[in-house]
Design a protein around this nucleic acid. Structure first.
Length: 478
DNA sequence: CGGTCTTGGTGTACACCAAGACCGGTGCGGTACT
């Protein structure tokens, strides 16, 4: 049994901190007592420190399942910078020989990062199993719930994979989880008895505003007005890459802000560049799709605007939660145009196959140019799912997405306190009432009163950050 | 699904409308090609 003293000692030696942030020690103690643990901690609470410290104290392999290659690379660099060289990310971006070298030398590593897809490969799984990891970490664990079964189906295999690894001690971490998502994560990981470490998710410094429109032109005009008036930096979310491009161009032309688009069509180099420029305050506003966000830890974002509806309230909370990490007053504005929910509906229908499609694709092996749905169904068939099971899973998924959309629409329309509604949705008690709460409590959005009006014209000579600051921002230190 | 843009036919020469086409998010790994 590991004592708290050991954790404190390692915290001092390795990180130079004297105390833990809320939730960290609780999670470590829970793991040390042998309990599988689901830790719901706000971004920036230092979820990484938990498993890094656990590995350092126990001297066993920590296997981290992560959704994005860029996230894995950030973590490896950050470990390296702290002097931990025994960290690697096993990804498709390595050459065949590099990949093979890591697989053959797993016992030399203390931290190994993999995607669910990579871990599903029999050769990788066997090699990891042979090393007997002391801790399995599922980072951004809400992905298990929000992405399966119609996107990245390997996430649904993680429960099974965990058994194949010999049921190692498991830590699941996420920043946002309703009771439904928490239950879904545990069920799919087959860890119904996992302990929960929960920190409150309310963000009292984010004012909640919803504005409704009947004409598209009115919404566009309001967006331009808001971006002209609001203090930056800010993020605007879209459900269309084309619209994100168009609006970035329009805002560059009509406001004094420096604006760029960010979505999956950009090549890796441009994406990296846009992200870094935003981090370093060389860009004021990002017009993004849902591709933007995970791993972004910028503390001075003043506004998050939604031009289109997100998929559900969990995503909404996650996206607006990127504002105001520094604790300063910030604002979340949802611009709703009548009929916007039809785009959400379409995006859901486009990836969730119907029963007749499932029957067809179940019998016909996908060809090279087959639809994503065809590959999806074949994937489940190859993993032993029966046709009826697949139909049931997707029917449930369709119902769940429809419900999520209707709950979001309730948020849009509800005439009472928006924060009270969301806190209720997350199953958390309402924190003490804040004075700047939401549009319904304050009779509208008053930027002056919130202190969010841009006071001075943008950019009076760009300030050059010193190189230490730039490097620190690059690697996400805090 | 539903809005927006393009195409094509009409009847009488440049405008009009109806029918049809098009579009709409998130990423991993691997494989086949230059």
């Amino acid at each position: 049994m590991i004592s708290n003293d050991q954790f404190y000692q390692t915290l001092r030696l390795r990180f130079g901190f004297d105390s833990f942030r809320p939730g960290q020690l609780e999670a470590l103690t829970s793991l040390a007592s042998g309990q599988n643990t689901l830790a719901v901690l706000p971004t920036g609470a230092g979820k990484t420190l938990i498993y890094e410290l656990y590995g350092a104290v126990t001297h066993q392999l920590v296997l981290v399942v992560s959704p994005l290659i860029s996230l894995m690379q950030d973590q490896v660099i950050s470990l390296n910078v702290r002097g931990e060289k025994r960290a690697a990310a096993l990804t498709s971006q390595m050459s065949r020989s590099e990949h093979q070298w890591v697989v053959n030398h797993l016992k030399f590593y203390r931290y190994l990062f993999v995607s669910p897809e990579m871990l599903s490969q029999p050769q990788v799984l066997a090699a990891v199993k042979a090393v007997k990891p002391g801790l399995l970490v599922v980072d951004e664990a809400h992905c298990i719930s929000t992405w399966g079964p119609d996107f990245r189906p390997e996430y649904l295999l993680l429960g099974q994979i965990r058994h194949q690894l010999g049921d190692p001690l498991t830590l699941m971490t996420t920043a946002t989880a309703t009771n439904r998502v928490k239950a879904d994560i545990k069920r799919k990981m087959q860890l119904s008895k996992a302990a929960e470490i929960i920190q409150p998710v309310d963000r009292p410094n984010i004012f909640l505003d919803v504005e409704r429109f009947e004409a598209a032109d009115d919404k566009d005009a309001r967006l331009v007005e808001l971006v002209s008036e609001l203090r930056t930096p800010g993020v605007i979310y879209f459900s269309s890459k084309k619209k994100a491009n168009e609006m970035a161009e329009l805002l560059n032309a009509k406001t004094s802000c420096r604006v760029a688009a960010y979505h999956a069509d950009l090549d890796a180099e441009t994406r990296f560049k846009v992200q870094q420029q935003f981090m370093q305050d060389q860009l004021d506003v990002i017009c993004a799709t849902s591709a933007f966000g995970m791993g972004i830890d910028k503390n001075n974002i003043r506004f998050v605007i939604h031009y289109h509806l997100p998929g559900d309230l969990e995503s909404y909370w996650q996206e607006i939660g990127r504002a105001g990490r520094d604790g300063q007053q910030s604002v979340a504005i949802l611009l709703y145009l009548s009929g916007d929910e039809q785009l959400s509906q379409f995006l859901s229908d486009a990836t969730v196959p119907q029963d007749d499609e499932i029957s067809y694709y179940f019998k016909h092996q996908p060809q090279e140019n087959s639809a994503e749905k065809a590959n999806l169904i074949w994937f489940y068939k190859q993993h032993g799912y029966r046709e009826e099971q697949i139909k049931l899973a997707f029917t449930k998924r369709r119902e769940q997405r429809a419900l999520a959309l209707s709950q979001l629409m309730t948020y849009v329309r509800i005439p009472t306190c928006k924060r009270a509604f969301i806190q209720g949705y997350f199953g958390q008690p309402i924190a003490s009432k804040v004075s700047q709460c939401c549009v319904n409590d304050s009779e509208g959005l008053d930027l002056q009163q919130l202190g969010l009006l841009v006071s001075t014209p943008v950019s009076s000579g760009t300030q050059q950050a010193d190189w230490q600051t730039i490097i620190a921002q690059l690697f996400n230190f805090s």
